[in-house]
Nucleic acid binder design. Structure first.
Length: 255
DNA sequence: ATGGCTTCATAGTGAAGA
C-alpha cells in the first residue's frame, strides 16, 4: 500500500501535474492540501477517469484538503473534533483498515502574530485529539503539510531560520505534543540523504540552491510503523514548469 | 538588510503563503 501527501498549491492550476504524478507514482491514497477549490468545482470526474475516488472539503482561494484513493474511503470525517475551525484543513477516511488523516496546518505568518497564536491553538486541538483517540485507532497515519520543520536537520540553514516561522521552539513543541501521543515521523524510520526537504520558496531560486525545509510529514502509529517499508520525497513534480512549491512525500507499507 | 515568486480576487494592487 502506497500512501502519499502533497500540497498542490491550487488544484486548478496543478491538475495536469497531479494526473501525471498519479500515473507515475501510483499511490493508493494521496492526501492533498491547498486545493483552493470549492466542492462543486472539485475535478472529481477527471480523477475518476484516472482511476481514483476522492473525498474533499475546500473553499475559495485558500486552504482545502482532499483524500484521493483507488478504493472509496470509509467513515469520512471533517475537521478536528471539538475545534470549530472555518478553514478547510482536515479530512479523514479509512482505507484498507488504515485510518488516514489529511492535514493542512496553519502557516502562522510569524511569531507574535494572531495567526501564530491560531497555529498553536490548532496544534493543541490536534494533540488533544491524538492523545484521546489514538488507543482506539491502532493503524493511524497523519499525512500533510504540517508547516513545522521538526529538527534542525530539516532546515537548510538552521542559523538563518532560528526562531522563525516553521522552526520556532513553540511550534516544534506543539508538533512534539502530537507525536508524543505515540506517532513517529515515518521519514526518519529510514536512512535519508542529508538536506532532504519538501518545500522550497518560489523566490530566490530556492529549489535550485537547495534552500528548503521539510515541513510535509507522514506520522504513523506504532502498529503502522511496523509495516513501513520506505518513505521518500519525490522531487520530480518540483522540477517541472510552474510547479507547486511543495514536493510529494511517499510512504510505502507492506499491507 | 530586505526581498526576491505564485496564486487568488480583482480590475489597482493587495493578501496570503512559507
Amino acid at each position: 500500500m502506497r500512501l502519499a501527501s502533497w500540497n498542490v498549491n491550487s488544484l486548478r492550476v496543478r491538475l495536469p501535474h497531479l494526473l501525471d504524478w498519479l500515473r507515475e507514482a501510483k499511490p493508493d491514497v494521496a492526501c492533498l492540501q491547498e486545493t483552493k477549490t470549492e466542492d462543486p468545482n472539485f475535478p472529481a470526474s477527471e480523477l475518476r477517469d484516472a482511476g481514483y475516488h476522492a473525498v474533499y472539503c475546500g473553499q475559495r482561494a485558500y486552504n482545502g484538503v482532499a483524500i484521493v484513493s483507488r478504493t472509496p474511503a470509509a467513515d469520512v470525517a471533517h475537521g478536528i473534533p471539538d475545534f470549530p475551525d472555518d478553514p478547510k484543513r482536515c479530512i479523514a477516511g479509512t482505507l484498507d483498515g488504515v485510518r488516514i488523516v489529511c492535514l493542512y496546518a496553519p502557516n502562522g505568518e510569524a511569531p507574535g502574530t494572531d495567526k501564530y497564536a491560531y497555529k498553536l491553538r490548532w496544534y493543541e486541538a490536534l494533540a488533544r485529539w491524538m492523545n484521546e483517540g489514538l488507543p482506539r485507532t491502532p493503524k493511524l497515519a497523519l499525512l500533510g503539510d504540517m508547516n513545522v520543520a521538526p529538527e534542525d536537520r530539516d532546515v537548510h540553514d538552521p542559523k538563518r531560520w532560528a526562531g522563525k516561522i516553521h522552526v520556532s521552539e513553540p511550534e516544534r513543541a506543539a508538533l512534539k505534543k502530537v507525536t508524543d501521543a505515540g506517532l513517529v515521523d515515518a521519514f526518519r524510520l529510514f536512512p535519508q540523504p542529508e538536506k532532504s526537504f519538501s518545500w522550497w520558496d518560489y523566490r530566490l531560486r530556492a529549489f535550485e540552491r537547495g534552500w528548503g525545509l521539510r515541513i510535509d510529514l507522514a506520522l504513523v502509529s506504532p502498529a503502522l510503523a511496523k509495516h513501513c517499508t520506505a518513505c521518500t520525497i519525490d522531487l520530480g513534480p518540483r522540477k517541472r514548469e510552474r510547479p507547486s512549491d511543495h514536493a510529494p512525500v511517499i510512504l510505502d507499507l507492506d499491507i
